[in-house]
Write a protein that binds this DNA or RNA. Structure first.
Lengths: 218, 218
DNA sequence: CCACGGTCGGCAACAAGCTGCCATCGCTGT
DNA sequence: ACAGCGATGGCAGCTTGTTGCCGACCGTGG
């Protein structure tokens, strides 16, 4: 993964860590995008960012874009606010479909691939045109994304009833039954469900179930 | 958790391990029930059973009951067969709703509770009437369950198309679109979906999505 | 060849889910 | 008091999902 190699595939988290951790110490600009919180890049990026924050706060611009699903769970929403407050990270929320991405100084891009054989593969891209292309895509997402606090304010109400709605959805009960159990009309229950599905970025209930599980909401 | 204490609550996997690992070495009868493979009790139970198998094979009866979802993934299905062949474990499949349970010698029962605060709590029950009650429930499930090979033979066809069906379900596409992509009629696609939902024990597509994600199928 | 069993796929009836519409209600501000 | 706004919930039309039915087709065995 040295100069001359435009794209290299790295298999597994450990290898990626070995090859990239120095970047957190040297980069002046780090930009991340992810669907959820439980992924390697953002887990480790947060750990490394802790060290970075202590050592280099003020000298590095950190940006993160997430999907709204991360705000449904109050604990993870709070975690995001902490990251923003502690590290000075700029955090925005987008409803766009995201590929897990991390950019260093507009010079190196890491894209997460699929999980295969129990290990996730990552594309580490250093070729400058490609990095520029990915960066411009990231910037477009960034521009259209909503500031964390603004989005969070809009989602606070959804968050309140979400655990109960998700629990009932996870039990497989019909809307009419679920609504009755919550003391709501069916129309209102379905509104809540639709809001959750929007927040999860899901087009079907199956997909919503997958997403909710991924995010640890059920 | 000594004599006189009928039910004790243990929080977290580490504590449970500390308190129960000796049982794997001394018990002559171990019976487990679970929905999937990725839970502590059965993960560690398998590790401990490895040691047990080497040291005590022939001196301990091991029984496990699972839900059919574990057979959808060919890798985990194979893993089950290996456990059965290597350890002489008797494995059956049930479509009944299961609580994660492990029984030692009809004298001690462990029931998994909910995940709370990031840690799962377990009820460790030594009170004999309660253990008998749980045991009899287990025996009822065991009796009505189907032998691994028999069930597996019935599920082999489902398994074949499952990855593709699950992938499309996970993308949120409509049945008509998914059927077309697979080159099937809608009626047949829906048959495949219904079979998967049965195997997952799901009553709704949301629930199926959750289950599928839990089992690592998507 | 025929009979039988199993699967597929179109069709249709029904249920469940999605969402717009609108009347009603409660709350807030003037 | 009234006006305005937002949320609720019933209703209804539409879409999507569920499942039975049945004819067609294929493979197998006698």
């Amino acid at each position: 993964m040295q100069t001359g190699e435009a794209v290299s595939i790295v298999r597994g988290d450990e290898e990626l860590l070995a090859r990239t951790s120095h970047l957190f110490a040297t980069a002046t600009e780090i930009a991340c995008a992810a669907n959820g919180l439980g992924t390697w890049m953002l887990t480790h990026a947060s750990e490394d960012l802790d060290a970075l924050a202590r050592a280099r706060r003020g000298h590095v611009r950190v940006r993160k874009v997430y999907r709204p699903g991360v705000l449904i769970d109050p604990v993870s929403a709070q975690g995001l606010r902490r990251v923003r407050d502690r590290h000075g990270a700029e955090i925005r929320i987008t409803t766009d479909e995201l590929n897990e991405t991390i950019l260093f100084d507009r010079r190196l891009a890491i894209l997460a691939g699929d999980l295969s054989g129990g290990r996730r593969s990552y594309s580490v891209i250093t070729q400058s045109e490609a990095v520029q292309g990915i960066t411009s895509l990231y910037e477009a997402v960034w521009r259209s994304a909503t500031d964390l606090d603004v989005y969070d304010a809009g989602i606070a109400e959804i968050r309140e009833l979400a655990p109960r709605v998700l629990d009932l959805l996870g039990q497989g009960v019909k809307d009419e039954v679920a609504a009755r159990r919550l003391g709501l009309g069916v129309r209102t229950y379905r509104r809540r469900v639709a809001e959750l599905m929007d927040a999860l970025g899901a087009d079907s209930r199956f997909q919503a179930g997958v997403r909710a599980r991924e995010l640890g909401l059920v």
